[in-house]
Nucleic acid binder design. Structure first.
Lengths: 194, 194
DNA sequence: AGCATATGCGGACCGGCAGTCCGTATCGTG
DNA sequence: CACGATACGGACTGCCGGTCCGCATATGCT
């Protein structure tokens, strides 16, 4: 058996992901039907399904591609994303990075949420963020129900919400707000005001 | 012109809502197709659409029915839901009541979120909860970005999340957790531990 | 009661969707 | 070059949300 992905398969994989991205950018989440993706990528519909399994799988793959770097930086990279500094510091760095990804991919995020529905919490990516966040919170503020708190913080990373609250000309408003809220949760009493 | 809804119309309205409820209960959100609803209610499909406009409208109507009482209690009822006591007290009562509704209608909540997608934040019900919450937070903890905080708290009221975290035999775990988190947000330093 | 008409009804119909299937083409290997 | 493994394409299926319009009926008026 062949160990490596066949060349044409790899080429198509990329083409499909790129096409998905283009469609997402040009017309919102509903615009991305798998027929359209296949057509734009110049492949058959069957190919899309063989590679990605389902609409949800496709979006998930794209999302994972966008966050792979962050995942690796957290696990094996240098501080403050990687291990080696106090949890508070890592938390800030983590939220900043995740926020940036979310802000830059809000439409993709929405589409993914819609496609996954309730399976969202079984998604490996979600599990990873949740676990990481939960551990950092536990270290930064022992005694909190960190499992729940982590879910709560992640619940705010909702594509639709991000688009709804992000004012024109301040693309990082969302991340700042999340940081501030988490700071309050962690018990920073110092100046919460804008 | 007739001022009141025609009798058969009212009857059908109820039948459709009841059918929706039954389908939701017996088979999850995806189980509720409008064909099925119409069939179970014993009416034509057109009727469903004339009354409710769309799938989203139908679910929204059902949700509103479930929360009308709370809305009224908040606006004109006696404390602690209604006005007349400190914000902290009203906040606790509000979260308790909203939590109860959410816990009791998690499936409906999920279905509604899915159907509404990004229009969720324009929904009158959402606007009402958000406004109320925002005002209470502002009163209870001046200086916080209460607009954002209110969105963040409401983001946790996600049907899928509720189902995911609710352990068997402890139907109110979710509400308790939310209360505790909000308490921390508001600066209660006293015993956060379980 | 009987009529006129606004109002509501049903279900055939439409375009489009996610997902399946299998005969065919292509790749990589020896 | 030949051959088996692998991947491809796109017709096909079943269903969905939503529309439309000829028909039925409740209601208000006389």
């Amino acid at each position: 058996m062949t160990r490596t992905e066949r060349a044409d398969a790899a080429r198509n994989r990329r083409a499909v992901l790129d096409a998905t991205e283009r469609l997402l950018a040009e017309g919102g989440g509903d615009h991305v039907s798998l027929d359209r993706v296949a057509a734009l990528a110049g492949v058959g519909k069957g190919t899309v399904f063989r590679r990605f399994g389902s609409r949800a799988g496709l979006l998930q793959a794209l999302l994972e591609e966008r966050s792979r770097e962050l995942k690796e930086a957290i696990m094996t990279g240098p501080p403050p994303l990687g291990p080696g500094v106090p949890a508070r510091e890592r938390l800030t760095a983590f939220l900043d990075a995740l926020g940036a990804i979310a802000e830059g991919n809000a439409v993709l995020l929405s589409a993914h949420e819609q496609a996954c529905a309730e399976d969202k919490y079984a998604d490996p990516s979600y599990r990873f963020w949740h676990r990481h966040l939960s551990e950092l919170l536990a270290e930064a503020r022992p005694g909190l129900d960190t499992e729940f708190a982590a879910h709560a913080v992640l619940a705010v990373f909702d594509g639709d919400l991000i688009r709804h609250v992000t004012p024109p000309g301040d693309p990082r408003y969302f991340t700042r707000s999340v940081q501030r809220m988490v700071a309050v949760l962690l018990g920073d009493q110092e100046d919460v005001r804008t």
